[in-house]
């Protein structure tokens, strides 16, 4: 160990801050945060591989089962691969944004990582913006991977990329907000994966992600919950490309706002409740 040199500008005086203690712009701090959030993700090979291998394996299995099938009423006039390429892409976005974020936040709180961060001047919104950027990045990679593997089984590439982009952005923001909300409501990290699954599994089931649902009651109900609107918007953006989907996007946005409100009011950085 050595002794410490004064910082170049010298010790602060009591009344005024030295000229260099001026804040960096929020944008500079945000880019810094995104960079290091990415660095810690790519430095963890296990987490990285599972994040990307899961959707690939899933769509490959679906392809082996439904590849080369004809369009049918069961898949609303689409082929099985057309249908599943969209819903599996949607499930992987849900997993990357909602599930993984909720579990990661709960674990980081439990281990004290969040408290350490909270002890620095990093504004909370920049921390969450960095996480959102990360989840968006993973979502885009997941969608590209699913579409690419789907193409090997003759699923056509998406018809309307602009609509896919808007839907993806809204879906990611909504699911990240819900992930942060769930992390705010569970108090310990061991419970987080169970709570995440408890919400996600039935939701994915009734939203037609694994097989098309032909019950009007169920479809009306699921249409108001956060998963089916995303599935539907992505499905038509992938296949028919009939412009924007105001209703679905509106519902996603509403859930996103609800999740954000819960997170803002209830999020804790400290592992021990007061």
């Amino acid at each position: 160990m050595t002794t410490l040199n004064p910082v170049a500008v010298g010790p602060t005086d009591e009344t005024t801050d030295r000229p260099s203690r001026r804040r960096r712009s929020d944008l500079a701090v945000l880019l810094h945060q995104i960079r290091y959030e990415q660095l810690s993700f790519w430095r963890n090979p296990q987490a990285m591989i599972f994040t990307f291998v899961f959707p690939i394996a899933f769509i490959a299995i679906i392809g082996a089962v439904f590849g080369g099938g004809e369009a049918s009423d069961f898949f609303y006039g689409r082929t099985g691969m057309q249908y599943y390429t969209a819903t599996i892409a949607a499930v992987s976005v849900l997993g990357a944004c909602y599930g993984q974020l909720a579990i990661a936040l709960a674990a980081r709180r439990q281990t004290g990582v969040l408290k350490r961060l909270h002890a620095t001047p990093l504004p909370a919104w920049i921390y969450f913006a960095g996480l959102l950027a990360h989840c968006l990045m993973v979502s885009v990679i997941d969608v590209v991977l699913v579409v690419s593997v789907g193409a090997l089984y003759d699923a056509p590439v998406p018809a309307d990329w602009a609509s896919v982009g808007v839907t993806l952005l809204l879906g990611s923001v909504c699911y990240c907000a819900l992930g942060a909300a769930v992390a705010s409501l569970v108090s310990n990290s061991e419970a987080a994966p169970a709570v995440v699954q408890f919400v996600q599994f039935p939701l994915v089931f009734i939203s037609g992600s694994y097989f098309p649902i032909h019950s009007d009651t169920l479809n009306t109900l699921a249409g108001l919950l956060p998963v089916k609107p995303f599935n539907d918007a992505l499905l038509s953006a992938f296949t028919t490309g009939d412009g924007l989907h105001w209703k679905q996007h509106g519902i996603l946005l509403a859930w996103g706002v609800l999740g954000t409100l819960i997170a803002v009011r209830r999020f804790r950085w400290d592992p021990r409740p007061e």
């Binding site: 910082v7 500008v9 001026r22 810094h32 945060q33 004290g112």
Partner: peptide
């Protein structure tokens, strides 16, 4: 602050961890 119940990201390197925090401050040390 140096607290007891805190931790940092396990997968970053030592220098990266310190550089990461440095970026949060207006006038960090080297």
């Amino acid at each position: 602050l140096v607290l007891q119940d805190i931790a940092v990201e396990p997968h970053l390197r030592v220098r990266e961890t310190v550089a990461r925090s440095a970026g949060y401050y207006p006038a960090p040390r080297d």
